[in-house]
Design a protein around this nucleic acid. Structure first.
Lengths: 278, 278
DNA sequence: CGATTAATTGACCGACTTCAAGACATGTGG
DNA sequence: CCACATGTCTTGAAGTCGGTCAATTAATCG
């Protein structure tokens, strides 16, 4: 609600100073970008555009999440993209369809004038490269989402989501190697992102809890005893319910674990379940 | 199979001379691009890269289709992207995951050296803009796919696919306003693209045929009596089986028809079912 | 502390996948 | 020209996963 308007030069205190988009810029270029930036806050649910009002500016997410979503004729929603802090919004979101861009949580943004940014991009090859990286990552994220939506069960998708969340959402590592994840998004958003229902999310959570993969401290806080074990639930179908066709010969690729869902920046190499606490 | 190697300067006879990527370049820039291009043909099923052999060149599809796909642990496949003629391949397909890029049909390609292309892009702002357009379109295509996969039924998805196919695949308009569509992709590819099974594709086709929306001349050729009627099947749920929630208030947007699936270049404005034969 | 929203739980059921078998088309060799 | 083989497409039957609906319970906020 509060409209803080400070010159972008105050990157020094910015939480995403070394993350995502900004983190990949050299000091010189980042300062040039900062010169055209203005910080601004938005409340939950703030709508940035609908199909009749396209976004006329670019922004860097300082905190919170944006959701890019679209509805079906009968009112169901699909979130096609979740933009976490550190990412650029607007440049990559340019689209022709009937999408909405909303603040999924309270949101802090560094606004950039579209034209000024493009002028900077014309001048700075480095900036172009980093922006191009945003395209590549966003493409990768939605490709993974598409893959997961079609080939994974709701349970697997949710596990994959949790794994990814440990990189994007607050994840407090405890001294014993366990971790506490804060789910900053409501069940409805998670469900609509994973192409399932909030009832299923709830059921799967409690199923995972009963199996010891997570512990539900409260609806927003999950304790994860073993991240790797959880990760395996997200990529591998262990249950015998699914008939195993002959595995296609796929070279000598890792049969162990494959990358799953990406929210925001892709992992280094894409391997899910990289040891965060080991 | 035949390895035709001619200098790119022979754009004059190229089928995509005025389509997609090349069609959007000015003569001057296109000639520069042609200078670094070499035409080459590939057989069906040719694999361009797997995750251990990333693609080291760029290409413009002269004819045929490429498919970008990924498998699940139990061998099921999802095609996340179909690249039709006129589009650039490689630049946008750069990805971190375990994807495969294959020729879905016999394929004609204009190969471009990656480094030379990037050098050209550094020099020519126009080229950068057009390449950026490829990113935007590819993103839009997969967003629509994601949306459709989650919110549309297999039947609706297939209808949407057919509508889109009339723009990408051979579609012969008959004097009476009907049209004959040639499906250049096998059922299996269509199914794995639409996140369904080839059995469902078959069933839906014959269901549509029995309802008069299409006429199956043979498995590869569908006669479409009324494109608009078919389009409505792809975006609107007419059946009463689906409970209609209160439609979210979405401004005064067109309640009639919304864009569906995109294969390749997005339509002008995105409106599906634009009158091709009326 | 009441009111409103979010999350959970249970029961039902239907659409779609899966499995299996048959039809059709296409090509090869005798 | 026919027999056979191969692959694609079609059709049928059965089972189930997960969505939808409805009713509680829990959490949040003024």
């Amino acid at each position: 609600m509060s409209i803080a308007t400070k010159k972008g030069a105050e990157c020094t205190v910015c939480p995403v100073r070394h993350k995502g988009f900004c983190g990949r810029l050299s000091d010189r270029v980042r300062q040039r970008v900062a010169g055209i930036a203005r910080a601004k806050d938005y409340p939950v649910g703030h709508s940035f555009w609908t199909h009749e009002n396209p976004l006329d500016f670019r922004g860097i997410v300082r905190n919170g999440y944006l959701r890019l979503q679209r509805y079906s004729m009968d009112g169901r929603r699909q979130i096609v993209s979740l933009v976490p802090s550190g990412e650029v919004v607007g440049e990559v979101e340019e689209t022709h369809g009937d999408y909405e861009l909303e603040a999924a949580t309270g949101l802090g943004l560094c606004r950039l004038d579209r034209r000024e940014l493009h002028r900077l991009m014309d001048e700075e090859g480095e900036l172009r490269q980093v922006v191009r990286g945003q395209y590549v990552e966003r493409l990768e994220a939605i490709r993974q989402l598409t893959w997961a939506l079609c080939l994974l069960t709701p349970r697997e998708r949710f596990c994959a989501f949790l794994i990814r969340a440990t990189r994007v959402m607050p994840y407090h590592l405890l001294p014993d190697g366990k971790g506490v994840l804060t789910l900053e998004l409501p069940r409805a958003d998670i469900a609509d992102f994973l192409g399932t229902s909030k009832e299923s999310i709830s059921r799967v959570s409690h199923q995972l809890a009963s199996e010891g993969f997570i512990e539900i401290l409260n609806p927003q806080h999950f304790l994860i005893p073993d991240l790797d074990a959880l990760a395996r639930q997200g990529a591998v179908t262990t249950s015998a319910t699914r008939t195993h066709r002959a595995l296609r010969s796929r070279g000598s690729g890792d049969p162990e674990l494959t990358p799953c869902l990406t929210i925001g920046q892709t992992g280094h190499g894409g391997q899910v379940g990289a040891p965060m606490g080991s």
